[in-house]
C-alpha cells in the first residue's frame, strides 16, 4: 500500500522498516549507507540490503445509493459494510474517504486520517437515502480522473446496470493503479424471485413498470441472472478486482472476516 506516512500496510516501495526483504546489486545513486559491507567482504561485490517499507492506507469507499439499493435491506447492509471498513481503517491510522452516488449525482469526501473523520463519514452515510438513477460509474470515473494518489477503492453496490459501463469504470481505476475491491450486494429474491402469481413490477430507478407472469418469465429471468453473474465475475477477474458477492442475509462480519483473511494471506505471501 502506498501511503504518505508510515503505517501498518506494506508499501510497494522498499523502505526502512526492520523487516529484511532481499539483497540487490548496488547501482549508482543508491544510498551508500545502505551498502552491506559484510557482504562486500565475503564476495568482493557491492550489495545493497533492502528492507520492507511500511506505509499508511487510503481507503476510498464508493457507496451506491441508487434507487435499486433501497430494495429490501441492501442499502443498510452496504452502509454497515462501508462504515465498518471506514472505522477499521481510521482506527489503524489509515485515511478513509467516501464517494457516494445517487439519482445521477455523486459526492466525494476525500480520504483523511484526521480525528473526527469517522464521525463525518458515519454522518454522511446516515444522511444518504437510496433514490433515483445509478451514478456509480460516473462517480468512479470522476474519482479515478481526479485522484492521483493510489488508494484502495472499495465499491459497494448491487451493480444492477450495464456491465460495459462498469467495466470501463473499473478499468479506469485499475489503470490508475488503485487497489479495487468490489462488494456485490444482492438479495436472494432478486436472484430467484418467489412470485407465485402475476405481479406488476415497478422499476425502482425509473418510471417503467412491467406486468409479469411468473410462469411465463421465470425461466428467462433466471437465465438472465445466471448470465449476468457469470459475466460480472469474469469482468472483475479480468480487471484484477477483488470481487465479493454477498447476500443481504449474510452476516457482515463473516463477509469482512473472509475479506480480511484473504488480504492478510496475500500480504503474507
Amino acid at each position: 500500500m502506498l501511503g504518505s506516512v508510515s503505517g501498518r500496510h506494506q508499501s510497494p516501495h522498499r523502505g526502512s522498516s526492520v523487516e529484511f526483504a532481499e539483497y540487490r546489486r548496488y547501482q549508482p545513486g543508491d544510498d551508500l549507507r545502505r551498502l552491506d559491507w559484510r557482504a562486500y567482504g565475503r564476495s568482493d561485490r557491492y550489495y545493497v540490503k533492502e528492507f520492507e517499507a511500511d506505509t499508511n492506507l487510503r481507503l476510498i469507499l464508493v457507496l451506491d445509493a441508487s434507487g435499486s439499493m433501497a430494495y429490501a435491506n441492501k442499502f443498510d447492509v452496504a452502509r454497515q459494510l462501508a462504515a465498518t471498513l471506514a472505522y477499521l481503517a481510521i482506527g489503524q491510522g489509515d485515511a478513509s474517504g467516501l464517494v457516494s452516488a445517487w439519482d445521477g449525482q455523486y459526492e466525494h469526501m476525500p480520504a483523511r486520517r484526521i480525528a473526527g473523520q469517522v464521525e463525518q463519514l458515519f454522518a454522511r452515510m446516515e444522511r444518504l437515502q437510496p433514490v433515483g438513477d445509478n451514478a456509480v460509474c460516473e462517480a468512479i470515473s470522476e474519482f479515478a480522473e481526479s485522484t492521483r494518489q493510489r488508494a484502495m477503492v472499495v465499491l459497494i453496490s448491487d451493480f444492477l446496470f450495464d456491465l460495459d459501463r462498469l467495466k470501463t469504470s473499473v478499468e479506469h481505476l485499475t489503470f490508475r493503479k488503485h487497489d479495487v475491491v468490489a462488494f456485490h450486494v444482492m438479495t436472494a429474491e432478486e436472484i430467484r424471485p418467489s412470485w407465485d402469481r402475476p405481479v406488476r413490477l415497478q422499476d425502482m430507478e425509473g418510471d417503467e413498470s412491467m406486468l409479469v407472469d411468473p410462469e411465463e418469465i421465470r425461466s428467462g429471468y433466471e437465465t438472465a441472472v445466471r448470465e449476468y453473474l457469470t459475466n460480472i465475475e469474469k469482468l472483475m477477474h479480468r480487471s484484477a478486482v477483488d470481487y465479493h458477492r454477498m447476500m443481504t442475509d449474510d452476516a457482515v462480519e463473516d463477509v469482512l472476516s473472509r475479506f480480511l483473511s484473504a488480504r492478510l494471506g496475500d500480504a503474507a505471501r
Binding site: G67, A70, Y71, V199, L201, Q202, M204
Partner: peptide, 9 residues
C-alpha cells in the same frame, strides 16, 4: 404492484 430493482433481468 411491487417495487423491483432488477428490471434489467
Amino acid at each position: 404492484t411491487m417495487q423491483w430493482p432488477a428490471m434489467m433481468f
